[in-house]
Write a protein that binds this DNA or RNA. Structure first.
Lengths: 342, 342
DNA sequence: CTGAAAGCGCTAACAG
DNA sequence: CTGTTAGCGCTTTCAG
């Protein structure tokens, strides 16, 4: 039989209310009795029951996290950001893999709510009406991380996929390329797929280049897609001279696909990726890529959640973190056109 | 105010006990009243409070997982195995990053115990006396995954690091190499570091090759270590002709370090890694490596934990999963010496 | 500064 | 098949 607060009270010769006070660091306890209680706790090996506390206080100091796949480097890094900030604020995390299946996402969210989590961080590709419906029945705050809801009602932390897609394409265009191909993510995915692709189109459009369907390969974000994309691009008469892949894994697949066919990167083909997972530095040539602050997205989302949980005022419920391009060796060093003469 | 079981009871015109029964799928309820209750639940939008249930039933259907770093591909894969089996058995997971800091590991374990988890899966590099002490105060089962305690008392699921280290070295030796170097993990780590290294020594010893200190580089499991190791090995007069790295990341670092110096793999140097994380296939040449069944270690550990939680009989509390070598292109295809003539 | 007492929402005997 | 009745272990007024 585990020792309870009542046992400690008896041992220390005080009431359970007093024990509760010292356990919770309430200052209204005379030092001498505090010491007595602490002694009893130590002696009995008392360990507070957080479930009972949760029931009585209606706070569990636990938050729920719904994640597509913890084995994905991208999401794992996000999760790390969440966990670090959570532990800083003394929260624990219930982690649930959704496999990106909507009905599972909804089910998990409900389970989390049943477990009385104090808040939820939700990661997923797409936010549907069904999601909104479940989310609104929640009595605790929910923030989206690495995604955003179409209606803009929910708090969220993400980057601008559109801008990022635009910038990556623009980066290639500014190097003089006229034939820029793209390996997209699944287009059913509104942000990672569609928005990045729209950014690509915008950039092309802006310089008056017509979108060519054969320059677009619809990938699934994984390595093999990159290799497959190369197959398609190299079969064309007017092969592209630069490729923008919507994920680093695909970009590395592209590089290897190219190298397997005897082409050199960046000499024969320039390649830019997206995300900046660690893999980007573990390939030759090292990958130039759009840096997404994955860890920060998680960390900021968690921080935002704490604000909601503490009823603090928040200025912007939708936060877009900055992205940038990290130039490495899969693209050529740009010639500096603006040498000032000294 | 959230709706409680009591509200449902009133709405349905039954007692809360009956509501509890239908919620918990107890068969002893007349279909007609079950329907009534279900209707009330639906109408009121009732959502059972798992915390209250946990307090009353002394089971939380939640388990705790202590992990060194969820952003590590190796542990993330393990975590995935755990989560999949856990969700199959209707358990949720409280995930805690320990950063491999012992005092944090102990603290987290205690927190998990306070939260009344039904069991714990512990991942870490080393199990000390302090660990054992905390573990024994737990009234719920604890199983180790990807590690093993020195005394062999705790249930655990892992591979034989010694055998694996031996096999990898032997693999190289059998290809005729006399100068085989090793990039180890931290030797303070008894399993990943020391045991694999001991396997290496054993294999050398067996064929009468003297261990050379300069052929051993003490890495930290990460990519950069591999590159640094190459520096050391290539500075020697009698350079090694094959390298065994105790992690895939280091092995890929080795490959790139070699390539950066103009050497070819496997022509000039053969390389074998350890783990078989996805990266092993995303490098050129693809990495030959010791396959560790990461997902399975997690899955089996979780399965084992369910047995303990249900008081089922378990035959072996220490399970060693098989490892094997996956030959890819970082080692030469072996000549077949045993061609039978037909 | 400390104690008494009333729940938190649910499960689990125990009756009936 | 269904209702009654105790708690589960702790927090939280409210008195004193």
């Amino acid at each position: 039989m585990p020792v309870t607060i009542y046992d400690v009270a008896r041992e220390a010769g005080v009431s359970m209310a007093t024990v509760s006070r010292v356990v919770n660091g309430n200052p209204n306890v005379k030092p001498s009795t505090r010491k007595k209680v602490l002694g009893a706790i130590e002696q009995l090996g008392y360990r507070p029951n957080a479930v009972a506390r949760g029931l009585a206080s209606k706070r569990t100091t636990t938050i729920g996290v719904v994640i597509p796949d913890i084995a994905s480097p991208f999401f794992a890094e996000l999760a790390r950001g969440i966990d670090d900030i959570a532990s800083m604020y003394k929260y624990n995390i219930i982690l649930c893999d959704s496999d990106e299946r909507i009905e599972r996402e909804l089910h998990l969210t409900n389970t989390l709510l049943e477990k009385q989590v104090d808040g939820i961080i939700f990661m997923g590709r797409e936010i549907t009406e069904n999601h909104m419906q479940v989310f609104t029945t929640a009595s605790v705050p929910i923030v989206l991380a690495g995604t955003k809801d179409p209606t803009g009602q929910l708090p969220s932390v993400d980057i601008s996929h559109y801008e990022a897609g635009y910038d990556a394409t623009r980066f290639l265009l500014e190097r003089g390329h006229k034939r820029v191909a793209m390996v997209t993510g699944p287009l059913v995915d509104p942000l990672w797929g569609m928005r990045r692709f729209e950014g690509y189109k915008k950039a092309l459009d802006e310089v008056g280049i017509m979108l060519k369907d054969s320059y677009v390969y619809n990938g699934d974000t994984h390595y093999e897609s990159g290799i497959a994309a190369v197959e398609q691009f190299l079969s064309l008469v007017d092969q592209p001279t630069a490729i923008f892949a919507a994920s680093d894994e695909m970009a590395v697949g592209v590089i290897h696909g190219l190298q397997d066919r005897g082409l050199r990167v960046p000499e024969d083909m320039e390649v830019i990726g997206f995300d900046n997972i660690r893999l980007a530095e573990m390939v030759r040539p090292r990958l130039t890529t759009v840096v997404q602050p994955m860890y920060d997205i998680g960390a900021v989302a968690m921080r935002l959640l704490t604000k909601y949980m503490n009823n603090e005022k928040v200025d912007h419920h939708i936060v877009l973190l900055p992205h940038r391009i990290e130039e490495r060796q899969s693209t050529r060093a740009e010639v500096d056109h603006n040498d000032d003469i000294e």
